[in-house]
Design a binder for these strands. Structure first.
Length: 884
RNA sequence: GGGAGCGUAGCUCAGCGGGAGAGCACUGCAUUGACAUUGCAGGGGUCACUGGUUCAAUCCCAGUCGUUCCCACCA
């Protein structure tokens, strides 16, 4: 017996364990079936589940469960990411609370500490994914710093280095003065701010009283100026090109050069050059052989390359002091407000400094080529397609990828330096020494390994094949690569998707996935991004606790329309929890009425119209769900199943069949029980990918003899002629008549409980047939006492027009004639509006000649129908008026 | 500066070249047999604005306004 209410927490736990122990998640059991593979976007190993994960993994689980039910050999490859900077920051914060830094511990002890933290918190996110219902193959769980995956990282690094696609270079990088590491362009967040623009006079050397005014947003960088640039065509400055300025405060003589970069429209037209601290100036400096003077240390404080008074100062303090000193020298001209973008580190939140240093880079431009063509040729499809443009845009303008990080948690770069800076990149230290031996021709040297680690995204880029065993050529790799679809948020399109494309093509020679489905962000109900500081974070686990995992999953699915953010309101979750309750109660109804699944039930077999009708509707819903899944239209899946289950099955079918179930026609009862059970069962199948827990529970409870789990059963693919036009016509008629009577009764305040007599007038033969066949149904659902033909209409009765028939509730003296008159007049006004519209359209010759014939025909039918109904309602109105 | 999305009922959003939809909220009625986490019925919208294409535009095109986001090294 089913409990009176659905208890998610016990059911969810029970079935998840059952699925796992039944091996339902394990790949490879269906050796002959087509494989279907998804790799999970690996969450941060020390993180916890947020709404974005909940959405992302719900969508994956829907595809995975559906594919499994459709007979595929499914692999959902799970795992976690070491998330270098993020994880290291967490552990460093813990250390800070103990008053320590990582340097107090030293590298090895610090690494142990992070591994401990990983061991402690690493299970959180995976257990939360289980609570969500994610049917990952946990036996294959991987971590980006596993031995095998680390081997893959080294192998890729070494091979790319040997091909010249990874190189070490001295360039300006984005330096994070708080985290003390370089970061990639993608990790820099540009923020719009109102800054200032200061105008300074630089004396021209040897020309007393002549000044060149430059404008700058960063006064402190003037200490590193090594030139001034003007545009070659700028007549104001032509005569100064080739001369020098004396850099105030510092006293350095710096050249005035002509370069196209200088924009006559910007600032004063003369721009100071700071090649060691500005990306543009760096390029100009290269072109003109300007000196590179680095004035910052790793904390972004001024170093010994500046006048003594400034040494050790913070960059912000230095700015103030520079402006003051320039002012006191009479070289400060003015200051203006200036809207500008300032670079911030996305993790640290501090202003990033361009800093000149040696780092490792990937030649992304070369790797991007094949990744661009793969999408152009459709070997990988991006859904929704508009994201392809974004992908192309970025890939075609891709910059060298800075992959070295000055942190400890991550994959240490397999590069060893010799005594004079020679670089040996090898898989192991042993091989590095061997290479060094060869290089130094037997001379014994000491090698030191590069202390830096790789950008986290370097290892994530290998995820689709490193998790499957690469570089070994394993059967699993052979079978499941390339994967089928990748599901991810647009926020990591560049970070991750683009890089997987590059690495997959470079090392596997094949795209990593055929389809990339990009979903939106989950926001709060007002469209605000969820953040700790705003305090508007909704915790998925909290919602699961309160409403059940299924309710949360259904909500996310129903809102996952392509190309739009998901705005999550708790009222929605509550609404879909109610949907789960509805299903539960429908199942209880089945149980109470002994609607048990019948083995080998043939959906073409029922004879009763109501049964043939619901089977037809079910087929439509099932086809709709399948189409929606294949098109990644997740919200449509939810929508079509919601409306079929609640609106069609519960609200109509279960009500329509009650008379049969309670009647004494044994054959009809048996057929209806079997049909009800079968449709219920199909509903459970169709809903299972979205709401796996409650459907599994009901599937098992509704038939104690079931040998297998719903998770492993077969997706409904209903063939052939299950849609019966005759059954549809009659049942749709019943629905129409019942609805019309109910509406009229409600509007005219006929007491809901009152059983009233109904007469019908002017019915066609077909309608009379429908009445004869379905009289009991209409009487029951519309609360009628009787239903008889009449040859005239009683005076002052309530009249309801459906199609050609006038239904009459002879309530003379009971109903309010004025109200009835008003009701009919309103109906007439509506009909006349329609008629006018149709007539105007059909009176337009261009419409009749140019529009498709079937459209014209439809409009004609509508006009005829409206006209006929108008006449009948008019007659009804006259009768009422006669009675007044 | 470049690009993209969005603007439809009070709120959150589907839809989309030929009769404006859902959920929630709101109003009225209904409680002894699946379900009040319910049922029945109802109110509510110049589909942002202006032009254009078309027999026909909420839908396609252009522009405007508003809004969100992405990319970009501009003193």
């Amino acid at each position: 017996m089913l409990d009176k209410t659905y208890q998610p927490e016990t059911v969810e736990k029970k079935h998840y364990e059952q699925w796992e122990s039944a091996g339902a998640f394990t790949c490879g059991a269906r050796g002959n079936a087509d494989p279907y593979t998804i790799v999970i976007p690996p969450p941060n190993v020390t993180g916890s589940l947020h709404m974005g994960h909940a959405l992302n993994n719900t969508l994956q689980d829907i595809l995975i469960r559906c594919a499994r039910m459709r007979g595929r050999d499914v692999l959902w490859q799970p795992g976690t990411d070491h998330a270098g900077i993020a994880t290291q920051m967490v552990v460093e914060r813990q250390l800070a609370e103990e008053g320590k830094t990582r340097h107090d511990l030293g590298r090895d002890a610090f690494m142990d500490r992070v591994w401990d933290w990983k061991a402690e918190s690493g299970g959180t996110i995976t257990s939360q994914l289980r609570r969500l219902g994610a049917s990952c193959d946990w036996s294959r769980e991987r971590f980006t710093m596993d031995e095998g995956l680390s081997l893959a990282v080294r192998k890729v690094f070494v091979e790319l280095f040997k091909k010249g696609l990874i190189y070490r270079d001295k360039r300006l990088v984005n330096w994070d003065p708080k985290l003390h590491t370089a970061i990639s362009d993608l990790e820099v967040e540009q923020r719009e701010e109102t800054g200032k623009l200061w105008y300074f006079r630089y004396p021209v050397e040897g020309e007393e009283g002549t000044f060149l005014t430059v404008a700058t947003t960063r006064p402190e960088t003037m200490l590193a100026d090594t030139g001034v640039a003007v545009h070659p065509e700028d007549d104001r400055f032509k005569h100064l090109v080739g001369k020098n300025c004396t850099l105030p405060i510092v006293g350095r003589i710096i050249p005035i050069v002509a370069d196209d970069y200088a924009n006559p429209e910007k600032g004063t037209g003369a721009v100071k050059m700071t090649p060691a601290h500005d990306f543009n100036d760096f390029e100009v400096g290269r072109r003109h052989n300007l000196k590179m003077v680095n004035i910052l240390d790793k904390d972004a404080c001024l170093n010994d390359n500046v006048p003594e008074a400034y040494r050790g100062m913070d960059r912000h303090d230095a700015r103030k002091k520079i402006v003051e000193e320039m002012d006191s020298l009479g070289l400060f001209e003015k200051v203006e407000d200036n809207p500008m973008t300032i670079p911030y580190g996305d993790r640290s939140g501090v202003v990033i400094e361009p800093w000149l240093m040696d780092q490792w880079f990937v030649d992304a431009r070369t790797l991007a080529g094949p990744a661009i063509s793969a999408v152009e040729q459709g070997r990988t499809r991006i859904v929704p397609q508009q994201w392809e443009n974004t992908y192309y845009e970025w890939m075609r303008n891709i910059q060298p990828w800075c992959i070295s990080r000055q942190i400890w948690w991550g994959h240490q770069i397999p590069a060893w330096f010799g005594p004079d800076g020679e670089i040996f990149v090898e898989m192991t230290e042993q091989e590095a020494y061997a290479a060094a031996d060869k290089f130094f021709e037997g001379e014994k040297v000491e090698l030191t390994r590069d202390p830096d680690v790789l950008d986290t995204w370097f290892s994530s880029a290998l995820w689709p094949f490193s998790t499957l065993g690469w570089p070994e050529q394993t059967p699993v790799l052979e079978r499941y690569y390339p994967t089928d679809v990748l599901i991810t948020g647009f926020d990591i399109l560049f970070f991750w998707v683009a890089r997987m494309m590059m690495m997959g093509l470079a090392f596997m020679g094949e795209v990593p996935f055929h389809t990339v489905y990009i979903h939106a962000l989950v926001r709060d109900e007002h469209g605000q991004k969820m953040s700790k500081s705003k305090g508007n974070i909704i915790d998925p686990l909290d919602l699961i606790d309160r409403f059940g995992a299924d309710a949360l999953r259904f909500t996310l699915t129903a809102q996952a329309a392509q190309g739009r953010d998901v705005k999550l309101a708790e009222s929605r979750v509550e609404g879909y929890r109610n949907f789960c309750t509805k299903i539960w109660n429908a199942a209880r109804f089945c149980e109470m009425n002994e609607c048990r699944p019948v083995d080998g039930f043939d959906p073409a077999s029922p004879r009763l119209a109501v049964n043939r009708w619901i089977i037809g509707k079910l087929k439509e819903a099932a086809d709709g769900a399948t189409e929606a899944i294949d098109a990644y239209r997740f919200n449509d899946i939810a929508d079509v199943l919601y409306h079929f289950t609640w609106g069609t099955f519960c609200d109509w079918y279960l009500e329509l069949t009650k008379p049969v179930l309670m009647g004494d026609d044994e054959a009809a009862r048996t057929e209806t029980r079997a049909t009800t059970a079968w449709v219920m069962d199909q509903i459970l199948h169709l809903l299972h990918p979205v709401i796996p827990f409650i459907t599994e529970e009901l599937y098992q409870q509704l038939d104690a003899n079931r040998a297998s789990n719903l998770i492993l059963s077969t997706w409904p693919e209903l063939g052939g002629n299950l849609i019966d036009d005759n059954a549809t016509a009659r049942m749709d008629w019943v629905v129409r008549v019942v609805t019309a009577i109910r509406a009229a009764r409600a509007e005219m305040n006929v007491p809901a409980g009152a059983r009233v007599a109904l007469q019908y007038f002017g019915a066609s033969d077909q309608t009379r047939g429908f009445v004869d066949d379905h009289r009991d149904l209409v009487m029951r659902l519309a609360r009628l006492e009787s239903m008889d033909a009449a040859d005239k209409i009683a005076k002052g009765a309530l009249q309801i027009i459906v199609d050609e028939t006038t239904f009459v509730l002879p309530l003379s003296g009971v109903i309010d004639l004025d109200a009835e008159q008003a009701r009919l007049q309103k109906e007439i006004a509506r009909l006349e509006g329609e008629i006018e519209k149709f007539e105007k359209k059909l009176g337009n010759e261009k419409f009749v000649t140019k529009a498709p014939a079937e459209v014209v025909e439809t409009e004609r039918e509508r006009l005829n129908e409206a006209t006929a109904t108008r006449a009948r309602v008019g007659a009804a109105l006259e009768r009422i008026q006669a009675a007044m």
